[in-house]
Design a protein around this nucleic acid. Sequence first.
DNA 1: TGGAATCCCTACCAAACAAGTATGGTTTAC
DNA 2: GTAAACCATACTTGTTTGGTAGGGATTCCA
Lengths: 150, 150
Amino acid sequence: MRLTAKSEYGLLAMIDLALNSGEQPVSAREISERQAIPAKFLEQLMVQLRQAGLVSAVRGARGGFVLDRAAEEITVLNVVEALEGPLHTTVCDGDRAETCGRSGACAAASVWKQATAALRDVFTATTIADLSRTQVRLDDAAGTEPAHEG
Amino acid sequence: MRLTAKSEYGLLAMIDLALNSGEQPVSAREISERQAIPAKFLEQLMVQLRQAGLVSAVRGARGGFVLDRAAEEITVLNVVEALEGPLHTTVCDGDRAETCGRSGACAAASVWKQATAALRDVFTATTIADLSRTQVRLDDAAGTEPAHEG
DNA sequence: TGGAATCCCTACCAAACAAGTATGGTTTAC
DNA sequence: GTAAACCATACTTGTTTGGTAGGGATTCCA
């Protein structure tokens, strides 16, 4: 239940990959420059995305990353959980659940559960493909420097 | 977009007040003992709840707190925002919104907006009265030490 | 009148976390 | 064999979390 810059950067990176990786992989440096993400920080995120099975890495010169499945098959939830860990309630959880005495039988807990479920719904309903299309549309409308080149 | 122990404690305190304050106000110490919340920490939260206009304080001996309006009229969002501040997006916000270049025209931002809206919906749909009824039902079903006495 | 209970206020603190930075190793194309 | 890239680990700096400490100010009650 905690969203940080990691999730934002992660989404931007995944959108960038969806839009720019064709035959060739896209290097972390390219993404970092295009999306204005600190290079070394992005490197760490790419490792997590790889470990989560969302991207594949190509090592060595001319290496980089490619999406490991179709952008339609990667949800925002996949990216967020890869970077922030499983989306759980944060509150009324773990230790507290026992120390408060009413293990599970707590009215407050139901609200947190609903909140988590609502977030999960939103994050599951949107894919990287959706966001890529949205981004292209926004870039074209603005006529500014696009995040995609080809 | 960040939920901490404050919100949990705050909800428990509000439910406790709804269930236990009749003619007499309920002291922070009573709440702290019944709900297993550190006493001095709860005191701070009660100040915030008072400043947000959710509870009224009665000072001096035999003093305490009472809800400032009907439990039906106090939403979870009221309590959460009183304790955590306004419910905004955390990510793609503030500085970042400018530095990333695409001021507003960012596909990722739309997801965070939807997420915040979804949370707001959940928190607005539930009142302290709802939670109090739920808590009574849970306590009765469990047959354990209840959080209400009258 | 004087405790004692209670809210009120400010300050302080340790641990965890966020968001990077630094350094170097390993793999691969050219 | 060198440069480009990923990979791994450790460190840093500032903020937040979840409290604690210590003393006020107010009010009931004996």
